[in-house]
Amino acid sequence: MTPSQTALTDALVAARSGNRTLDASPWTDALATLAQAYEVQDAVAAALGWFDAQPVPGAWKSGGASRSATLTHAPLPPAGVRQNASDFSDLVFHTPGIEAEIALRLGQDVTPAQAAQLTPETAASLIDAMAVSVEIVDARWQDLAATPALLRLADSQVHGALAVGDWVPYAAVDWASQRCEAKVGSAETVVREGTHPLADPAWLLPTWLRHVTRHGQTVPKGTVVTTGSWVGILPCRRGDQVSAAFPGIGSVRLSV
């Protein structure tokens, strides 16, 4: 890594370890490419020992603003990925928000050779289950709106934690008419229909799997990816009760 990458890694590790945030302005020019941001991602995870017990992380976030945008990916620290767990009060968040999503689970191992051949049309056959999920988005950056995209990506794509609901068998869904209902605290329920940015959550699977296998690793059966928000980012505060429901698929509830 470059000296700037090493310094940024150290700063992010210190911020996470000390439960504090960083001013992004001194780091604006620290990263020049996506590859450099991913190298910092990996270095932060290694320094904090997130994946010492598993060579390939068991849960990821992946997505993008549209099919024409560059999709980005981040492995999720296992301590914050919780199945049917409603309480996240033990974790530290600074300026949290929530995203209502669909998570997908691999039903088989995927090798680098298999990942290289995937298309959006064939990749869905690798999925055995789906679940409603809520990502708690949170950053190590003080002013997220003013933080460059590469710095967000280096910071695990500003991930805080992930709540996953019950798994149900994966099946073809009319995503264009799929309804999403998200509620935060006493705010009105946010209702959206057919608003996944990629039109189909499974569309990102080939790009995501090629990223995960880029160092020659096989992605194991059971690996989970959450696939992008249907409601953007909804602001929330500590103690807020949050719910997300996708009629016909499931729901999840949690306390931030």
Rank of each mutant, 00 (worst) to 15 (best):
D143L: 07
P77V: 11
V81W: 02
Q114T: 13
L126A: 09
E99G: 09
S177H: 14
D109A: 13
R105I: 02
E135W: 09
D109V: 04
L76C: 11
P77Q: 09
A145Q: 14
K183I: 01
L153C: 02
Q142H: 09
R105Y: 10
L91V: 03
T122H: 06
A85L: 06
S133E: 01
S177W: 03
S86C: 04
R140P: 04
R140W: 10
D174R: 04
S133T: 13
P120A: 09
P112C: 02
T95G: 01
L104P: 06
A103I: 08
A139W: 07
L76P: 00
L162T: 00
V110R: 08
P77E: 10
L106D: 09
Q157E: 03
H159V: 00
T147M: 00
G185K: 09
A131T: 06
S86V: 10
A154N: 05
V184D: 01
V137E: 02
C180F: 11
Q114V: 13
G80M: 11
G160K: 02
Q108R: 15
D174G: 08
Y170P: 00
L76T: 01
E121L: 11
T122V: 00
G97F: 06
L126Y: 03
A161R: 05
E101I: 11
M130H: 07
A115W: 05
G80N: 05
A145P: 00
V164N: 04
G97N: 04
V81D: 03
E135M: 10
A182N: 02
F93C: 01
